[in-house]
């Protein structure tokens, strides 16, 4: 399998304070990777860096044959304005942006795709509902439907199962499984370690630094978990400049 992205001594952060510190590694095409770690470990930051929303402080992210539009990103709390008067169907249709662009008509084929996507996240019949009337879990499922329509080869999911009930989780896991069979690369930030052990062959345990990266059963061990908890420190206002060379 060919590597789809190389991380070279990557440091990401905010206002020069690193949230992900000197991370090196690669992800292969078709891999299903779970990113785990305690709060503040830099998991979400890593995804934001991968999707290009924040630029590396140092090091680099090198995608191989992946264009920006091939990457779909489901943020942790999408900044969707829920008071905006837009229907579920219209919002989900935006997943077809790559095909429709700013002007393309939402034709019958598009409508069928939208219906199918809504159906597969269990929101059949919600087309005309305004997004403001959805519950938190339904909202998340709607965003998943949009993700399906994006038809991307790389999917970055930040806590995709937050506020989602068990039945829907197993349903969404089925979707993820299907994506993997289609050789899509999936990188998901997850907190439920049991779920990671059951479904994700590869894991990255992050605690600002990389604690362990590889086969899940080797990564999520008691020692590495303990190590990760001790590594995350408070935001240090007076931190020294990092002198570590590449």
């Amino acid at each position: 399998m060919a590597a789809i992205v190389h991380l070279n001594d990557l440091t990401l952060g905010y206002e020069r304070h690193p949230a992900v510190h000197h991370l090196t590694g690669q992800i292969e095409q078709g891999e299903l990777v779970a990113v785990c770690g305690p709060n503040g470990a830099g998991k979400s930051t890593l995804l934001k860096g991968l999707v290009g929303l924040i630029k590396p402080l140092s090091g680099s992210i090198a995608w191989q044959n992946v264009r920006p539009q091939d990457i779909a990103y489901l943020p942790q709390s999408a900044d969707v304005d829920r008071s905006f008067p837009i229907s579920v169907q219209e919002l989900v249709a935006m997943g077809l942006w790559r095909r429709l662009g700013a002007f393309g008509r939402v034709d019958r084929l598009a409508r069928q795709k939208i219906d199918a996507a809504l159906d597969s996240v269990g929101l059949a019949g919600f087309q005309e509902r305004l997004i403001g009337t959805l519950s938190g879990g339904q909202m998340q499922r709607m965003l998943f439907a949009r993700l399906i329509l994006q038809d991307a080869s790389v999917l970055l999911l930040d806590e995709p199962f937050a506020a989602v009930d068990d039945r829907t989780i197993s349903h969404l896991l089925g979707l993820i499984e299907a994506w993997r069979r289609e050789q899509r690369t999936i990188i998901a930030v997850l907190h439920d370690l049991a779920l990671v052990r059951d479904y994700f062959p590869t894991s990255l345990l992050l605690a600002r630094e990389c604690v362990a990266w590889g086969k899940t059963e080797h990564v999520l061990t008691e020692t590495s978990m303990q190590q990760s908890r001790s590594l995350v420190e408070a935001f240090d206002r007076d931190a020294e400049f990092c002198e570590r060379g590449p």
Binding site: V51, G52, L53, Q69, I71, A72, Y73, P75, A78, D79, V80, D81, F84, I86, L91, M94, W97, R98, A102, F103, I131, R146, Q150
Partner: peptide
């Protein structure tokens, strides 16, 4: 002309940033 991106800019600017 800018109707669709403008609506998307209002309702989900983060998403618009990742696709366009």
């Amino acid at each position: 002309v800018i109707y669709r991106p403008l609506v998307l800019e209002c309702v989900d600017p983060g998403f618009l940033r990742t696709i366009s």
